[in-house]
């Protein structure tokens, strides 16, 4: 017989030396130690991401990540069905009370969609910031950003081997909001009258526009509007909106979005996961406060 040598850190039940899981609460005894396997606590993690003892693949940075910038927040999550997160997001404060956000959803049937969406988001956000900060108008900056994002993902492939993703961006300033998009990721306005701000590039369940080496010339849809009261811009991938398709559904699920953006983003992701998490889930919550342009 083996002697009891320790107690479970979660429930204090006695555990035996060499055991990985608590017999009482079932949780991993050693989980949480730095550099340890998240499932069994072993330190023998392979370079390819699998634990050398229990074989469980370690969550990567993208499996679940959260971001906060200025008054806004975003959460991106792998969901319950996909083995990796092919969505990518970026959120940044452009200047005083001006926010920019980008979400790209990698097309699962394309090769390396996770690399593609990340490249597109990074190029899109970098261009948005550069253009807006150098005084370019919201619409032109949005178009320039889409063009750079399209080029960034296109160079990752060839026509026959093309990583592909959707794209949606929001520029939110006190006097004006500009949305640009390609594909079926969406933006919503949650205010006095909740409104969907995008139309899906989608026909019979198939994307009709996307970014990628096989996409040809990309012409984004761009729209601007001037809200007449306070509200929130939601930017998201279909992993969220499939469960909350209408603007009213979205508004009902996010009642405190304006005052607590991060908890709202977390709650929306949880809602999608609880409903099945069929796809990767990404959501940005960007509050809007009416005012005059800071410039």
């Amino acid at each position: 017989m083996t002697a009891v040598t320790d107690t479970c850190p979660h429930c204090a039940y006695p555990v035996l030396a060499g055991e990985s899981f608590c017999e009482e609460c079932g949780r991993a005894i050693h989980a949480g130690a730095p550099g340890a396997c998240t499932a069994c606590g072993s330190a023998s993690l392979g370079a390819d991401g699998y634990c050398g003892r229990c074989g469980v693949r370690q969550p990567t940075g993208r499996d679940h990540h959260e971001t906060v910038a200025g008054n806004s927040a975003g959460v991106s999550d792998r969901g319950r069905r996909h083995s990796r997160n092919e969505d990518a997001m970026a959120l940044a404060e452009v200047g005083d009370r001006v926010m920019a956000g980008v979400v790209c959803d990698g097309v699962s049937s394309s090769p390396r969609p996770d690399e593609g969406s990340l490249a597109a988001v990074e190029a899109g956000m970098a261009t948005l910031l550069k253009e807006l900060r150098s005084g370019t108008g919201q619409v032109d900056a949005t178009r320039a950003a889409v063009a750079r994002a399209a080029a960034a993902i296109a160079v990752l492939g060839t026509y026959d081997d093309a990583p592909a993703c959707t794209y949606v961006s929001a520029v939110v300033a006190p006097d004006q909001v500009t949305i640009g998009w390609v594909g079926d990721s969406r933006a919503y306005w949650l205010g006095a009258r909740p409104t969907r701000l995008t139309t899906d590039d989608n026909s019979g369940g198939m994307l009709t526009a996307w970014l990628g080496a096989d996409a040809g010339e990309v012409i984004p849809q761009v729209s601007t509007f001037e809200p007449d009261g306070p509200g929130v811009i939601i930017v998201c991938s279909d992993g969220l909106w499939n469960y909350l398709p209408s603007a009213e559904d979205m508004a009902q699920a996010a009642p405190d979005a304006a005052v607590s953006p991060l908890p709202t983003a977390q709650a929306l992701v949880r809602l999608a996961n609880d409903a099945g998490g069929r796809d990767n889930i990404t959501v940005l919550v960007i509050p809007f406060e009416k005012g005059s342009s800071p410039k």
């Binding site: 699998y50 229990c54 074989g55």
Partner: peptide
């Protein structure tokens, strides 16, 4: 050993 939904395991190398 059974895993949780969404978890990926190397079952054999």
């Amino acid at each position: 050993p059974p895993g949780v939904v969404g978890q990926e395991m190397r079952a054999a190398w």
